[in-house]
Design a protein around this nucleic acid. Sequence first.
RNA 1: GCCCAUAUAGCUCAGUCGGUAGAGCACUCCCUUGGUAAGGGAGAGGCCAUUGGUUCGAGUCCAGUUAUGGGCACCA
Length: 647
Amino acid sequence: MSVDVTLKDGSVQSFDRPPFGLEIADNIGKSLAKKAVAIRVNGDLVDLTRPIERDAIVEIVTRDTREGLDLLRHDAAHVLAEAAKELFPETQVTIGPSVENGFYYDFARDAPFTPEELERMEERMREIVNRDEQIVREVWGRQEAIEYFRGIGEEYKTRIIEDLPRDEVITIYRQGDFVDLCRGPHLPSTGRLGKAFKLTKLAGAYWRGDSSNEMLQRVYGTAWSGEKELKAYLRQLEEAEKRDHRRLGKHLDLFHFQEEAPGSVFWHPKGWTAIQTLIRYMRAKVLESGYEEVNTPDMMDRSLWEASGHWEAFGENMFTSDTDKDRTLAMKPMNCPGAVQIFNNRLRSYRELPLRLAEFGKVHRFEPSGALLGLMRVRSFIQDDGHTFCTESQITGESKRFCQLVREVYRDLGFDDIHIKFADRPPKRVGDDSIWDTAEKALEEAAIATGLDYTLNPGEGAFYGPKLEFVLRDAIGRDWQCGTLQVDLNLPHRLGAYYIAEDSDKHTPVLLHRAVLGSFERFLGILLEHHAGALPFWLAPVQVMIATIVSDADDYALELAESLRLHGVRLDVDLRNEKISYKVREHSEMKVPVMLILGRSEAEERTVTVRRFGTKKQENLAFDDTVETLARAAGEAPRSAFRTNTP
RNA sequence: GCCCAUAUAGCUCAGUCGGUAGAGCACUCCCUUGGUAAGGGAGAGGCCAUUGGUUCGAGUCCAGUUAUGGGCACCA
């Protein structure tokens, strides 16, 4: 019996018996064999140690590919499980997949692991790698597997097997004395894992991801194809930590949190300036896009929330007040019911549609304590909210208009890498399928019209309608979901909204909920991390710092400051008795976009030395030119503004 | 909400075996007027998150609470 395998380059290797992936790799080259982690046989990933029984098209998968790395990480999880079982035999294993940047394994045991035990497990993992144990695949009978795992007290593994489909082939991987249920494939031996891994953290995690189940002990680790990659990853973590908006918020004196108001921000003057600048910008953009701005009450009677359905669905996350003994008032977690009241306040004609109401409303949500995270997840925040009342046939046009707005805003704010997620009908929903058809088609058409990438999230829509979600990628490659467009086929009806159509009858409008930035608080957090704290000129709380070299220049500095201030430039003056290098250092650390440096010669010649953030270059300008340039920059739209922080 | 960790000066952090709290930066004052990332000196600043317990004695050990962080669950 002979087997021919065809390689990626079209060449063929012939064997007179079923070959192993390892042999094929070896025939191609030693270095490839060294990097190989699996082989792709007619499209399926297969162990390097498994014979290839018949002719096939094959491709060696190496550790430096996406798939190879996943496999490597999965192996790391197995080695971790082996280490845990050796050290703590009473611990039960459950599941251990590869994840982005690494892997984890969930264990069941009475007491959580301690940080010391984490270290011991990592040491043991290195021993297991050094032992270079063969990893052997075996096919077992279903009953045999259940009895085996039950016999050794592995209840979770037993349950996993019991829940597998009847016809599933049960495969077992054996490495040393450790035997685990696994689909595979795996490396030929533990030695191939290499040294580029590290256990990183301990966490609790619910069995099967369900909070009503017991909590397991999760051990996270990271693993890479080589030590260079591991180091690069650890460096990247450090970089992300430096950009952490919580650190920057403190350092740049933007905001703080304190115990008395968990999840709510104390905005300092500089932080609030940035927020207000963002709001001003968004206000101009939405007015330009055909919205009118409204404002609705922060607290409204419980009955309204019952009518809207919020009380039942989200009541547990709403703050309430019983100051008035006779009624319960609730803080708004969303602005939409208020917007509907404005729509309902008088009879509406179809001629008014689409009616676009924008609201920069502050909402309060009682988020679970464990969910709070700096500015990213808070209990009260300002939304750049908007509600459009329209007819079914207007959904497409309105959606396109909104997608256009989102694109412009994101581009203005410096985000060019954007994609859209389209969430269509969930199994449980309200409304006829025909109107879902219309709504989904409208959103999809609008998404396509943007020319941006979009992906389908099947069944992820809200019960009241499908939605688009706008995701942007920041400077260090992280994705943030910010904008959203949701069609609501439910709320207008629930709150009795209607308009008089051409046929003189009452019709229920469709409501579009939409936000571009989402929450101003969170978006500023994203901007801070994106820019590593160095906000662009138009957004910087302090745009210009005037620093003197000698006190003889003080009067001149104050004159320049006054002139710039009159032209709308946000600035500070540093007349302190300090050396100029000291001042430069300090204001550079505060990431002020422009420093104007004044010494004796500037004062005498009525010039200004300009130093922009991120560069050491100095520029000497006349007094009037400086004022004019900076005044123009301060008045300009964000995108075209004085780009000072991109050297 | 659940699991784990953490909480010391405005900030970043040290504090051994339980014996009355320390550094650097920032701040105030003095000297220095110096040309592009830290000039020098002096001073002030702490109910060691909070409540209780153990102890002759607690920043330190134990328990509760709160907040924060990392995860899980949640995210209208």
